[in-house]
Amino acid sequence: MVALYLGLVLLLPVSAIVAQAFRAGLGPLLQAFDDPAANHGLQLSFVLAAIAMTANGLLGIAGALVLTRHRFLGRRVLDALVDLPLAVSPVMTGLAFLLLFGRSGWLEPALDATGWKVAFAFPGLVVATLFVTFPFTLREVAYVLEELGTDEEEAAATLGASPWQTFLRVTLPNVRYGLGYGVILTTARSLGEFGAVLVLGGAISGHTQTATTFIYNALEERQEASAYSIALVLALASVVVLAALEWLKRRRRKEL
């Protein structure tokens, strides 16, 4: 019964896109890659994923350390803020940033003075992606840090290791699977982000149009073939993501 339910809810839709790909054959798929807008969209999505992975990977480790190892006034507030992006609809994320960077937004005077453009430009896509993917690495690493406790770090410190040495030789190797898991979730989420980059980026073809917003615009313009092709590429990417998640989970279980 469970297999039937998951089959209906999860596998049947996935099979639909695979069947569509087989029906259409390779022709339209390759044609879609010839389209410069589609190409640009895919590249942009991967660039955004790389930025989110790096920035939120580093800040995720730092944030996890601060949340689990420091005690300070406002830690609870920080803890709650970290989870906020998960509760906010992507459309509202886009709106919130528009109210900062858009016309008559809070930061408009500062942006005008420096000549920077965030809304409907590349920096807007970056902040939107950073916002929606922020919690993943931090939460995964924090979870591992909680489980580990501080025994090993204390031992290292007692033996005369500097905080930096302790971090590099004890803490970082210990959290590597959690870190990997978080980074992969971040990648998947940024590749798939749609609502926030649509609202804040404006999906300008060849400029701020990502892979997902390309699919959306193609559907609107009844260019189903290219929409399905790029959707298939993203679906394939998510299979790779899923395999990586599963592998990491197994490695982690083996080590515990």
């Binding site: 998951l6 049947l12 979730l185 959707a231 899923l242 395999a243 599963e246």
Partner: peptide, 26 residues
């Protein structure tokens, strides 16, 4: 069983827009 367990995480990996496209196709 492993496959079923991995399948449960599929929605975290797949873009929601692609989910919509799949449902339209279906």
């Amino acid at each position: 069983r492993g496959l079923l367990s991995a399948l449960v995480d599929l929605p975290f990996a797949i873009p929601t827009l692609v989910t919509g496209v799949m449902l339209v196709l279906l």
